[in-house]
Computed example of a mutant assay.
Amino acid sequence: MTVVAAGATATGTDRRSIRTGVRTLRTAGVYILSVLAGVGIWQLLAMKYGPSLVASPSQTLSAARELASDGTLTNSIIASSRRILIGWGLGVLVGVPVGLLVGQIKVVRQLLDPYIEFFRFIPPIAFVTLAVVWLGIGESSKVVLIFYTAVFIVTLNTSAGVMAVNESKLRAAASLGASRRQILLGIVLPSTVPHIVTGARLAMGNSFLTIVSAEIVAAQVGLGSLIWTSRNYGRIDWVFVGIITLGILGFVFDRVLRIVASRVLLRYGVKL
């Protein structure tokens, strides 16, 4: 009987593995077909409008090799990635605790709400000139603009998560003698983690929007600077390289964030 049960278990495990493999292959196949269809449409548009308006996939690939050979593309990727990660990381580090305070403490919410509601509607690009005047054309101006982009998004999502916590859970914990710190760590924070992750992902996407405008105005190296310089030289193929690189970089950053966040959320039974 033991041998039969072990064999049945092994067979069930094999079947699950096969089903998982089939699903993985199917997903990969859909992704590949989607990419091929996109490249095909891109090629048709390039054939219709010509290289002066739309660079073809082959021309873009050749331009990417050209920019990579002299280090321009690599340096641009490193510079933009560094600015995004530092500014976004600072935005998350500041936005999460501020959001927790805003969501939990009414007085803090009343004090900060007018400023949050005022500044979050002013786009970062409006502050580009001031950032350059105040902080110069160095790294600080770009990092501060990305921080400005990220911090309000993370704060709002975190505070929304705190205020969405079931009130009955908070009352039950308080009636059992839990301190404010215990309630925060045991109930509020676990319930708010999905909102924090969502805010971090949205902030990451908006950071990519900000980095282009910031680098166009005040940077010699970076993907935004590459796109602007390419435009000045009339190199549409270089512009396409910069745009596509931004998209790929954003996809990779978001994918890594999702993988890391999914492991954190798994502890709380939440899927991303």
Rank of each mutant, 00 (worst) to 15 (best):
V252L: 15
S58K: 06
L170T: 01
M47D: 15
I125P: 09
F208C: 00
L223E: 09
I18H: 11
P97A: 04
L111S: 12
T13F: 09
S207W: 00
L145W: 00
A172C: 10
G71N: 02
L112R: 07
A5D: 15
P114K: 07
G269Q: 07
Y148H: 01
V128C: 01
G138E: 02
L189M: 11
V217N: 10
T24C: 08
G99K: 11
T13N: 08
F208G: 05
T11D: 15
L135D: 03
N232E: 13
F119E: 13
S213H: 12
G250E: 04
S230E: 12
R109V: 08
V188C: 02
S34G: 15
R23N: 14
G50R: 01
L100W: 05
A79V: 11
I105P: 09
K169G: 04
L145E: 01
S179I: 03
F147A: 02
L85W: 02
I187P: 01
N206T: 13
V133K: 12
S56Y: 08
V154W: 05
A178C: 03
A160M: 11
G205P: 12
A261P: 08
Q59V: 06
M204D: 11
T20S: 13
W134F: 13
I183N: 04
L36Y: 06
Q43R: 13
